[in-house]
Design a protein around this nucleic acid. Structure first.
Lengths: 367, 367
DNA sequence: GCATTTTGTAAAAACGTTTTGGGCCGCTAT
DNA sequence: ATAGCGGCCCAAAACGTTTTTACAAAATGC
């Protein structure tokens, strides 16, 4: 005992050690080398079919699972995907997040990957991404709700690591992404309203620091341009904070202008609140006022009561989550270059509206 | 080349290999052995302070991060926590989940752990737990929304692996848990209503397969028992599905009985819907009808409009998430036996109500 | 001035896999 | 006959850490 004083400064409690079965145990049991076990399990062609069967049977019988950490160490592939959230009050506020996550988890399970999630303080720019790359924690990253020139994307592009973006922010030729047609959907919704005789429209949009919102705005403006109408035809109202009763307040604000006969909503959540505001104002939805919304299929919100009265464009966030992971896995396995995917949307004009504008071609646009 | 035909049956794409800096590079750079580097970094007392400084400086300069997988392999500790979700439509429906997750992520970050999330099909009982244990993926598990005799808990108790439960289900002396006082809160709310002269009360509860809901029901019944009132004093209405307008429908149902003058809600979400139903029925909240709710502080729901009119008991799900992880980490590091924690709740009687019953002692109860 | 402790460092073994580079046997084509 | 080849298997080397054991030099105790 020469080094009685040598110890770690932090006390690390001892833990129960459960003995797990290793590939060596399997070799022992079968009288085979671990090489053969490994190759049998990993589907190499140079192990006999009879042997392979024996190996699988024994693995099942002994409850053998390869130690992921040993695998990861030697293969340098983790089969882990990371999704980092900003740890501020606002981010988690958004119920859309859970929808996407449900899809992401399903996609990961199907693809044989695990999802590691972390939160990061807004001030410690990209430190989690940096750490995960340097310490070999994950194979790739999911980026959510990009802003223009998003620093996370800059960092990951620089690092050369696989990642995928839910949305776009201007550099989408350089990474894989999944998005809905924000521009096109609002282009069409705007034309729908104008074609149905509405001369003054309100647009309750989200925070335009996020590209999804700014693109929707651009779609609205493009429609006005194509129709030769002034931008002032549409009054834009921005909810800079997703929480609370922004939908209600902004609708009330929109109704101050008696000429407004149609309202476009950037989310069903706000549309539902807006509905209450309209009802409270005494105007009749579908008669005095046309309401339209982008609907992201939030499974916890039952929209059936509204369905006959709204125009809506629907797309599935859950589907987007699945597509995100599929794309990311493809990149982690170097299975082709980065691909962009538009999640399809379905159009449901409110009864009595002429929905033929939904078939109009959308003018070219980058995002 | 003898084995031109040996190949894996599945095509594995080649990938870019980025060279990362290892402990060996650090040793090279400093002219020290890797042993010394490792011990310096891990805070052992037998390396000189000057050397330790040099090591830290070089690690910073070279951007060295220990390979987690190598660490995990040799230490048999992963610093990963798992949270498995059931992959059905219903589970993700619940907005409470996101609140807890925000806390869990923060707790994990503070404790130096990562969170790995996975989804599991309801039919493949515990297979993900089994896999994670056998393949050394994680140190411990978080269990959410337990049911009575929850099979996940049975499995993990059997396995001997660390885990922590958000809620309780009858075996809570054998594991660590974090919960609110479901029983006590509804005991007090019930007594409040009775003490304030309400002779007939409705209770809009959740699915009583979940223990949080059944405990709330028990609290209500205990209050009636203590007051010598029949169970029929309170009419219980169960929302078996959290989605949709259950709060609205069940409230309408409750209002069918004109004698009902107070309604207790098991969640703010349902209470908010119930509020609309009451308003629509023509009754005046706070005058004709007293409303009370358990409020879990959903950050995306702004409740200020209701605050003056409701009685509510508030507790923080985010705080619960943090406490959950703290407890789990404690167990993973064998820092004491399993501990149960009650997250505190604050009581806010509606104006005009006598809230002194909130100070009443709650009779003993297991859960 | 010698034995003993303390201080600082290093070599080597382990962790549990995958991969590399064969070896052996029997069959086929020269 | 025999070189070549395919089918089947294995020993050993890697992957990047932590931990164990060891040892030299310096400080201390008597």
């Amino acid at each position: 005992m020469k080094h009685a004083t040598a110890h770690k400064s932090s006390t690390a409690g001892s833990q129960i050690r459960r003995s797990r079965v290793t590939i060596k145990d399997l070799g022992q049991d079968l009288g085979l080398s671990i090489t053969t076990i490994s190759r049998a399990l990993n589907g190499y062609s140079d192990v006999g079919e009879a042997t392979r069967q024996r190996v699988f049977e024994a693995a099942e019988r002994l409850g053998y699972r390869p130690n992921r950490n040993a695998q990861r160490l030697v293969t340098r592939r983790t089969h882990n995907l990371a999704w980092v959230q900003s740890d501020n009050e606002r981010k988690f506020v958004d119920p859309h997040f859970v929808e996407v996550m449900a899809g992401v988890l399903r996609g990961a399970r199907i693809g044989g990957y695990d999802l590691v999630m972390a939160s990061e303080m807004p001030e410690e720019q990209n430190s989690v991404y940096d750490r995960y790359i340097k310490d070999n924690s994950v194979d790739g990253f999911i980026i959510d709700l990009p802003r223009k020139n998003d620093p996370r994307i800059s960092f990951l592009l620089e690092s050369g690591h696989p990642f995928v973006v839910h949305g776009r922010e201007g550099r989408e030729d350089r990474y894989g992404w999944v998005d809905i047609d924000n521009f096109g959907n609002f282009y069409r919704l705007t034309r729908l309203m104008i074609a149905n005789g509405h001369q003054r429209v309100a647009f309750v949009n989200g925070d335009e620091h996020f590209t999804f919102a700014s693109e929707r705005h651009k779609g609205v403006l493009a429609a006005l341009r194509d129709l030769g109408l002034p931008n002032s035809t549409v009054r834009v109202l921005n909810a800079t904070h997703p929480m609370g009763d922004a939908g209600f307040q902004l609708t009330a604000q929109a109704l101050d202008d008696p000429a407004v006969s149609a309202i476009l909503y950037s989310s069903t959540l706000m549309a539902a609140e807006g509905y209450s505001a309209v009802v409270r104002s005494g105007r009749r939805v579908g008669k005095d006022l046309a309401l339209a919304s982008m609907d992201d299929e939030l499974h916890y919100l039952d929209l059936t009561p509204y369905e006959g009265q709204f125009t809506y464009v629907r797309s599935s966030l859950r589907q987007a989550g699945i597509a995100l992971v599929e794309e990311l896995i493809r990149q982690c396995e170097s299975d082709g270059g980065p691909t962009g995917t538009i999640v399809p949307s379905t159009f449901h004009p409110a009864p009595g509206l002429d929905g033929s504008t939904f078939d109009l071609p959308v003018p070219g646009h980058r995002i």
